[in-house]
């Protein structure tokens, strides 16, 4: 579903990604771990076609990037620690706007379905700026799954959420994964991703330094992570 070969990204003289190779099969839930500044967000932004690679080959959902970026974006849902929502529009208006941008014709049924899934049906007519951080993040997930994407990218989705909101987010993430969607998520919260992901990759100094499935961790995730950074 995602294939990346020899990906390089430079910002001026600074090289952030140094020949990164990465592959995700359909239905996998990959947790992308790494210290601050490792290049996780840059990598996800390139996969989301928000940033151009300097060098390398990328294919997402069978389409090459950046040449067929629009086709990739139609199959992609992205959630970041920013909600990407308009505070002066209601929850429903925000989703309706994105439904139009994704070419969903009569979106009423889908909108109701998504609002129900993220537990915001009762607040559908409230302005987003009146929402708590957790509610905004739930609506952000609603926005990202509105067009039923095949691939989902989550960039630190738990940032700034309280325990209850994190639990609700995890419930939605599990539901997304259970539907067979391919998920790549960056996070610093090892305890939380250990329960969610089916594979763990460590990105350090611009390359993937370790990769293991749930069974291949050889102990717990923290030891695996520390080992990957030390190696």
């Amino acid at each position: 579903m995602i294939k990346v070969r020899k990906l390089v990204k430079r910002f001026g003289l600074k090289t952030v990604l140094r020949g990164l190779d990465f592959e995700v099969r359909t239905g996998e839930f990959v947790a992308l771990l790494g210290p601050n500044g490792a290049g996780k967000t840059t990598f996800l932004r390139i996969l989301a076609s928000l940033s151009r690679p300097t060098l390398g080959e990328l294919r997402v959902a069978g389409y090459p990037l950046p040449s067929q970026a629009a086709a990739v974006r139609a199959r992609l849902g992205v959630v970041t620690h920013m909600p990407l929502l308009y505070g002066d529009l209601t929850a429903e208006e925000n989703l309706r706007f994105y439904a139009r941008m994704y070419g969903l014709g009569q979106a009423d049924i889908r909108l109701a379905e998504v609002l129900e899934l993220v537990g915001l049906s009762a607040r559908r007519r409230d302005l987003v700026r009146t929402f708590s951080r957790g509610m905004q993040q739930r609506l952000a997930i609603g926005r990202a799954i509105l067009h039923d994407p095949e691939v989902m990218l989550f960039d630190e989705p738990h940032t700034g959420l309280d325990q209850e909101a994190c639990d609700m987010l995890d419930r939605i993430l599990r539901e997304v994964a259970a539907r067979g969607r391919t998920v790549v998520m960056t996070s610093h919260d090892l305890a939380r991703v250990e329960d969610l992901a089916s594979r763990f990759d460590v990105l350090s100094r611009g390359v993937i330094t370790a990769s293991a499935g749930r069974d291949g961790l050889g102990g717990n995730l923290l030891d695996f992570y520390r080992g990957a950074l030390a190696g």
Binding site: S49, M82, L84, L85
Partner: peptide, 17 residues
């Protein structure tokens, strides 16, 4: 308004020209 809440990214993620 688009940049401060990250909404510009939301717009750029849409599969439109």
């Amino acid at each position: 308004i688009e940049k401060d809440r990250g909404c510009l990214d939301g717009l750029l993620l849409a599969p439109v020209d």
